[in-house]
Amino acid sequence: MAGKTIFGMYDDDGTLMTGAAALIDKGLHIKDAYTPFPVHGLDRVLGVKWTRLAQCAFIYGLIGAILALSGFWFFMISDWPMNIGGKPNGVLYENLPAFIPITFEFTVLCAAHGMAITYLLRNWTLPGVKARNPHPRTTDDHFCIEISTEENNNFSEEDINSLLKETGTVEIFERA
């Protein structure tokens, strides 16, 4: 059976939440949902895992801090030690207070940009990428759930359609 995708549109986030919960109760698998703003709790209803972007940011930040400190060691201690303002650059720790500000800045720089780039790549939102939301109103005031017939073999198309209707959709459409 060729896979079809059925979309159900809601005009309210409340009906979307109760609708999605009801469909899942009936045993349907919802592939995804498209909303104009983050609907809190929807991830739990659909069973979407939380992202690990924060951990990435931590790692990027750590790399930034290490890079900055090793840079200081190289530039100011090893390669060309300079005694400026009575601050001898014999060893790194003696002059550490003067290095803290840039270490901090560089940590934040790496963490923020590293995470932002990862975010754009993971979401695949990049310049020139074509939008894949099923209906233009999902970025305005409509909420759309996506159901794949392939993933719901024990339901017929008609079943899915009627189940969707029961939950208060304002429009149902499908795509091959």
Binding site: A33, T51, L126, N133
Partner: peptide
């Protein structure tokens, strides 16, 4: 950038906003 607004995208969006 081809924004779609699916659930995972919004989760990431909120997480990125919070961490940033």
């Amino acid at each position: 950038f081809g924004w779609t607004g699916n659930v995972k995208a919004w989760i990431r969006f909120e997480e990125v906003s919070l961490v940033l």
